[in-house]
């Protein structure tokens, strides 16, 4: 059994440092309306709904139950939730469509980093016995990885600054981005990473509609067909991993068929400049590939949604006819512990 499944619509919020005038559902709901409007579908037409979010980010248990208010889950809907980035919610929805149980799926995710201190919140992801009690924040861990890359001769500070500059320059064309244009590389946050090497902290939401086969063609002029999607995880402890490489990304890309033919565009979920270096190497991307034309996570990094946004941006490029074959990547965990790769294609023009 194989079924062609495509991303047929994508929507996202304007990503902002804070949205304290809005509850999560108030932030999310306009995006749900927008993505449904693009297809003309209503909640009741959707075969399966899946979302991704994090209680720890919200500071509240079961925070996703209130977000469901924005969906209009009545009559009751077939629905699931992952405590992961929305890219994995999309993966779950993709498998649901593959089984033939549903022909359309609504996928959404959201995260508000503004209420808490996300650098500290993320320390709670770490080994609770040996690492979390030291409170090593997410920038510190990324900086350890960056230094390892510099030591290995894979990059240097000017090269990292160039990644930052290119990302924010590209983001000038992305009205949803939080950081755009020419920004100073700034002081060290945790050396060797400067503020410019780090993602903005902010709030945002995103949503995608998936559809299978002919249904996709009805709903979208040029569907972004998911030719392959796969995700892999690595060992948790940084001390057992080679931080200069991402074998899980490479394996996921292989399984997703990314190496069968070159892609023209790649949307990489690299919150830190140094992580783009790792991912380019793992994915064997050369200079012919447009990397992060949206500006990537360095321009907007709403936690739990930034990975789904990579898939959405890659798909939107295909919808617009700007891309024919694109790779989208999402990550989770410290220093790229878990990685998802999707390969999207448009019909030949």
């Amino acid at each position: 059994m194989t079924r062609d499944i495509a991303v047929v619509a994508f929507a996202q919020t304007d990503h902002r440092r804070t949205t304290d005038e809005l509850s999560e559902v108030e932030m999310l709901m306009p995006v749900l309306h927008e993505v449904l409007d693009r297809t003309g579908l209503k909640t009741a037409d959707i075969g399966f709904t899946c979302s991704g979010s994090s209680d720890y980010l919200a500071g509240r248990a079961f925070s996703f139950t209130l977000a469901l208010d924005g969906v209009g889950a009545w009559p009751p809907i077939s629905e699931s939730h992952v405590e992961m980035d929305g890219a994995w919610a999309l993966y779950e929805a993709w498998t649901k469509l593959l089984t033939g149980d549903a022909d359309t799926a609504l996928v959404y995710s959201y995260g508000k980093s503004s209420p808490g201190s996300v650098r500290d919140v993320l320390t709670r992801q770490l080994d609770p016995y040996y690492v979390a009690p030291l409170w090593p924040d997410s920038v510190a861990l990324a900086a350890l990885q960056a230094q390892a890359l510099i030591d290995a001769g894979d990059t240097d500070e000017p090269a990292l600054a160039a990644v930052a500059a290119r990302s924010r320059a590209d983001a000038t064309a992305n009205s949803h981005a939080q950081l755009r244009g020419s920004l100073p590389q700034g002081e060290y946050l945790v050396r060797p990473l400067r503020t410019g090497d780090c993602p903005p902290i902010g709030d945002g939401a995103a949503a995608v509609v998936l559809a299978a086969g002919e249904r996709a063609r009805e709903l979208c002029e040029r569907p972004a067909w998911i030719r392959g999607i796969d995700h892999r995880i690595e060992a948790h402890s940084l001390g057992v991993r080679d931080l200069t490489d991402s074998p899980s990304t490479r394996l996921a890309a292989e399984k997703a068929g990314a190496f069968e033919r070159p892609v023209d565009t790649a949307e990489l979920h690299a919150p830190f400049t140094s992580q783009e270096v790792v991912l380019r190497k793992a994915l064997r991307l050369d200079d012919s590939v447009r990397v992060n034309p949206s500006g990537g996570a360095l321009a907007a990094n709403p936690m739990m949604a930034a990975g789904l946004i990579r898939i959405g941006e890659a798909a939107a490029g295909i919808h617009r006819g700007e891309s024919d074959r694109a790779l989208a990547h999402a990550t989770s965990g410290p220093c790229l512990q878990q990685n998802l790769v999707a390969v999207l294609e448009g019909d030949p023009r």
Partner: peptide
């Protein structure tokens, strides 16, 4: 590998600037 933390945060091991380090102890492989 290492990273210089000039502004320690709450709960971290030292309250003066320090380096985060990964250390391979003598006799260890990780």
């Amino acid at each position: 590998t290492w990273a210089w933390n000039h502004e320690p945060r709450r709960g971290q091991p030292l309250d003066t600037p320090f380096a985060w380090v990964l250390v391979r102890l003598d006799g260890a492989d990780t």
